[in-house]
Design a protein around this nucleic acid. Sequence first.
DNA 1: GCTCAATCGTTAGTACAGCTAACTATATTT
DNA 2: AAATATAGTTAGCTGTACTAACGATTGAGC
Lengths: 155, 155
Amino acid sequence: MGERKPKKRPLPETSAIADRLHSTAIHLLRRVRKQDAATGEGPARLSALSVLVFGGPMTLGQLAAAEQVKPPTMSRIVTGLEHSRLAERRTDSKDARRVRIHATASGEHLLHQGRRRRIEYLARYLDGLTGQELATLDEGVQVLERVLRDWPSEG
Amino acid sequence: MGERKPKKRPLPETSAIADRLHSTAIHLLRRVRKQDAATGEGPARLSALSVLVFGGPMTLGQLAAAEQVKPPTMSRIVTGLEHSRLAERRTDSKDARRVRIHATASGEHLLHQGRRRRIEYLARYLDGLTGQELATLDEGVQVLERVLRDWPSEG
DNA sequence: GCTCAATCGTTAGTACAGCTAACTATATTT
DNA sequence: AAATATAGTTAGCTGTACTAACGATTGAGC
């Protein structure tokens, strides 16, 4: 971490943004979570299902890594998804230790439903914004996406 | 919500922003939460403590409402905070049904510590951004803050 | 002033989501 | 063939959320 550029510590500005970003993200998700409750599935299950639907079938370990969760946790989440018939475990034909997780058709359906509901909820409020504000928000999200994508996984 | 512009339903754009905003917020908070773990307290406790520190003492019901949680849940959170000596219950002198929750000095201290750690963590990555990107992010967060502030509480 | 309904909080019981440690089963390496 | 490494699961703990049922207190209406 130590190198020789003159600016070494966060500008006050940076800290302020970080703080407000954090608080804003918390409050945003609290709101949205209530919409998700209508699906009857918890947030961890919905998030894992989303990764499965958009990323395709993958092993339990990969799914755990994608969700930044330990394998035992993901194992339970998948068990829950299986009980609701939203996903299935299939054994890998090449390596019997591996378990490939697949979203079922009904899993995809539920995910898209929930997604639509959540987006409509959010979009209802975003619609109150001007085109300019919307563009600003969009660009901010893009910056954040880039930061997260390049984030070292160690923590 | 009804205005005179021809567009009535969310533009695809709006939905896309809403979707990415949601996903981004989830992943951001997953990262930050790991920093908070260093405080030894869970997220619900830290969040409630934060409300107490910045909003001052309040009744259990008020705190529950502020955190958008039911009273039994807040009761347990406060019990946890009490065991860690971060907050105290005091009976209201005017109304013996009410319980006023106060942050202790050590609660304030821990909160500020955790907040500093979290912000430094976030800011470390935000520092990798250009001034332009930072400004963009800042503006996006401001838009979002405004949306959340004006958000009707019903849901 | 006494009863009764409303309010505030807690207790009990359930479910979900995260962890570590210990285990089983399979693959790989030596 | 035996030792080691890898993938998942099981068991057990903690924390966070809910509803339902309850106790205590207050305030209203008679």
